[in-house]
């Protein structure tokens, strides 16, 4: 018993050290999304292409990506070419033009190409709030049963695409 008490500080040190070591190098900006595991919340948004009202019934039935972007967002410029690449590979992407202006968005898609199956206008950012978006770009992976399985904050690129792709089924 005495001997155990003598070694107690060392045991505590090792346990704490192990815990701290396992946390080293983790992304401390990472915040889990509250929406993961839930269905896409109800919405009614206006389509950029044809001014039609779009609700969640009009979303794709298979797995797809939902990408929040805006012409005001510098990182979206960097992300865009990769999204175009993904679209060419046949990945369905729904674009949410987040807190943006219609004519700027139209111009952007004409100039840079349109990787989106559908672009919906969220001018007030209210759908963004419902999705728990904190900025752009932000990308959600939605599986074939319409459940959000992953949220990626920041640019989607070659490095992190395999992770997102893993959820896309």
């Amino acid at each position: 018993m005495r001997r155990f008490v003598f070694f107690l500080p060392l045991v505590c040190f090792l346990i704490l050290g192990g815990v701290f070591y396992s946390q080293l190098g983790k992304d401390n900006q990472y915040v889990p999304s509250a929406l993961v595991g839930k269905k896409v919340p109800n919405f009614t948004l206006i389509s950029l292409e044809n001014d039609q009202m779009v609700t969640q019934k009009d979303l794709p039935h298979g797995p797809y990506l939902m990408n929040f972007w805006g012409t005001w967002c510098p990182a979206c410029h960097i992300e865009h070419p990769f999204l175009v690449e993904l679209a060419l590979k046949g990945v369905p992407i729904i674009g949410i033009d987040y807190k943006d202006q219609k004519h700027l968005a139209e111009q952007w898609l004409i100039e840079k190409g349109n990787p989106y199956q559908q672009v919906l206008m969220d001018e007030m950012g209210l759908f963004g709030l419902d999705m728990g978006v904190t900025g752009a770009p932000e990308t959600f992976v939605i599986n074939s049963s319409g459940v959000i399985v992953h949220r990626h904050q920041g640019v989607v690129n070659e490095q992190n695409w395999p992770e997102l792709k893993g959820y896309l089924k």
């Binding site: 509250a34 999705m131 728990g132």
Partner: peptide, 8 residues
């Protein structure tokens, strides 16, 4: 807020 942004 919690429903959208979590307990964070």
């Amino acid at each position: 807020m919690v429903a959208r942004y979590g307990a964070f």
